[in-house]
Simulated assay, not measured.
Amino acid sequence: MSTASSDAAAQFSGRQQSALQRVQNALHLYPWISPLVILILSFIAFTILNPRFATAGSMGLLIQQMAIVAALAIGQTLVILTAGIDLSVGAITVLAMMVMATLAKDGGMPGLLALIIGVGLATLAGLLNGILVTRMKLPPFIVTLGTLSIFTAIALLYSGGSSIQASHLPAFLNWLGKGFSIGGLRLTYGVLLVILLYAVVGFVLSQTAWGRHVYAVGDEPEAARLSGVPSRRVLLQVYTVAGFIYGIAAWALIGRSGAATPNAIPTANLDSITAVVIGGTSLFGGRGRLIGTLIGAIIVQTFAFGLSLAGVNQQWRLLAIGLLVIIAVSIDQWIRKVK
């Protein structure tokens, strides 16, 4: 076919698409567009409801509160891209945090060594999830539901269910809670670490062969296997890397909370999954971008923070987040029908 004929065919095909179909195609190519629109509209709405929402002080607090969920959502994104799900996010993070804090309490161990052990333990917990999924071929939902209870129990037994305040911990473990101000906007080193994690993992997903393999395993696992992708090994690596990220998030959580407590993040599982889904990553795997997850995490915290400033009680806040999740999944189902 000549170039002129190809151009004519493309033009004819374009004329056949309705405006709605063009939107559908755009969202399929760039799944982060819809959460970005929601975020912008949310900022406008909450600023109208309470002008204090848009102040530098409020934005700094929002970003600090969002950072932990955003960090956990990185690992959750990796898992969901492979068509899995991780319900043990919060339990692994709390376990790593309590191990770090208990080992380093009152000078018992140098902070750096306690951090390495805590992150290593979280990585091993992720590896265990991966082994159960890939070697024993158990559903990720069932595996992580089981390890959620196991890791939670271990954390409670190890720590005795008691909290450890920042004053009993070495400065190194508390360091990520410190920060600096830009005008009236205060940022912590923990926020900068989370941004760095997004940059590194985002680059790996978009620019490396391993990242392409992650998408391939989530999109069509059998086709990926037949094309030479080591699907089981990729899955095992995904859960292991996710565990490592949860361990880093545990360090950031100590700095953010100013303490290590077994009840630090009771809604971590729901919040991380919500951020990923709202961010445009498909629960069926194979589609999504990490930038969308970051936007989703900001949306989750924006709604919680904005509704709180507006004087809306907790029940209505939960209702709003639930509606967002249902809308996001509905949009995903619609986008997946693109031809």
Rank of each mutant, 00 (worst) to 15 (best):
S2D: 13
D7W: 13
F12Q: 14
Q16S: 03
L20M: 10
Q24A: 08
A26V: 10
L29Y: 09
P31H: 01
W32H: 14
W32D: 05
P35L: 00
I40L: 13
S42Y: 02
F53D: 00
G57F: 07
M59W: 15
G60V: 01
L61H: 12
L62S: 01
Q65R: 10
A67M: 15
I74K: 00
G75L: 08
Q76K: 07
T77Y: 00
L81P: 00
T82K: 06
L103C: 07
A104H: 05
G111T: 01
L112G: 13
L112P: 11
L113N: 11
I116T: 09
G120Y: 06
G126E: 05
G126Y: 06
G130M: 07
T134D: 08
R135G: 08
K137N: 10
F141D: 09
I142N: 11
V143N: 04
G146P: 10
T152E: 11
I154D: 06
A155C: 07
L156C: 05
A171P: 11
F180P: 03
S181Y: 11
S181T: 13
I182H: 10
I182K: 09
G184F: 08
T188P: 01
L192A: 14
L193D: 07
L196Y: 01
Y198K: 05
V204E: 07
A209Q: 14
G211V: 13
V214E: 08
A216G: 03
E220Q: 15
E222G: 02
L226C: 02
G228D: 08
R232F: 04
R233D: 03
V234P: 02
L235M: 14
L235F: 01
Q237R: 12
V238P: 02
Y239T: 01
Y239V: 01
Y239K: 06
A242F: 10
A242S: 15
A252Q: 10
I254R: 00
G255W: 07
S257T: 05
A259D: 12
A259V: 03
A259N: 07
T261G: 01
A264D: 12
N269L: 13
D271H: 02
I273S: 06
G279A: 09
R289I: 10
R289M: 01
L290A: 03
L290V: 07
T293P: 04
I298V: 13
I299R: 00
I299E: 00
F303T: 08
F303Y: 12
S308I: 11
L309F: 05
Q315R: 02
I321V: 12
L323S: 10
I327V: 15
S330D: 12
I331A: 06
Q333N: 11
